[in-house]
Each structure stands twice: as structure tokens, then as C-alpha cells.
């Protein structure tokens, strides 16, 4: 992809992000932060490329840095989605009266 097509994706995604995030209900702003945290760990893609490249005879340092980054991003991905799921499971409607 050339720079201009990447830039177009980026700019469009910023607009999508703007409208999508304004539609998030304020009650869910903490889960929003937790889930954005998890998805920003998509940077693991870069980390995987670096770790896998070790076999190609590339730099060994690069490979180990990649592996550490894979581990860090995994903490975030698994932790982020799990904690979001845990929070979202708590939001309940009034359907079950607690004290009757």
C-alpha cells in the first residue's frame, strides 16, 4: 500500500472513531477504556513479525525484543478483554428485584 491509501484509511478511521465513541453511553466509559486498551494491543502484530523473523537470520536482539513485546501485548489483550467482560457482566437491568 502506498502512503496515501494508508493515510486515507487512517483519516476515515478517525472519523468513524469520533462518531462511534460519542455514541458510547457515559455509564460504560470505564469498560470503553478497558476495551480500547485491549484492542490497541493489536500492536502484537508487529511484535509477532519481529519474533518470527529471528529464523530468517535477522538480528537476534530484534527477535528477543519482539518476544518480550508479544508477552506484554498478551497481558493486555487477555487481561483487557477479560476485565471488560467482567465489568459488562455486572450491568444488569431492573428485571430481577433483589429485595422483595
Amino acid at each position: 500500500m502506498d502512503f496515501i491509501s494508508i493515510l486515507s484509511i487512517f483519516v476515515m478511521a478517525c472519523f468513524v472513531g469520533y462518531y462511534v465513541v460519542w455514541s458510547v453511553t457515559p455509564a460504560l466509559h470505564t469498560p470503553l477504556m478497558a476495551v480500547t486498551n485491549a484492542i490497541s494491543s493489536v500492536i502484537i502484530v508487529g511484535a509477532l513479525v519481529a519474533s518470527a523473523a529471528g529464523a530468517l537470520g535477522g538480528s537476534a536482539t530484534s527477535k528477543w525484543l519482539g518476544l518480550v513485546a508479544v508477552a506484554l501485548a498478551s497481558v493486555n489483550i487477555f487481561g483487557g478483554f477479560a476485565v471488560t467482560a467482567r465489568m459488562l457482566a455486572m450491568y444488569k437491568k431492573k428485571d430481577r428485584p433483589a429485595a422483595k
Partner: peptide, 28 residues
């Protein structure tokens, strides 16, 4: 605190990936 800690991990991972890419540009 947890969210702040998670942010720091994303930041560190980004730094590490950038360094890895710098050291081994061919792979990227």
C-alpha cells in the same frame, strides 16, 4: 490503576516493536 498499568504495557510494547523494526527492517 489497572488501566494505567495496561496503558504502560501498550506503550512499552510499541517501543520494543519500533526498536525491533529498526534493528531488523528487512523482516518488516
Amino acid at each position: 490503576q489497572l488501566v494505567a498499568a495496561f496503558h504502560s504495557l501498550v506503550g512499552l510494547a510499541a517501543v520494543l516493536v519500533a526498536i525491533a523494526a529498526y534493528l531488523n527492517p528487512q523482516a518488516f
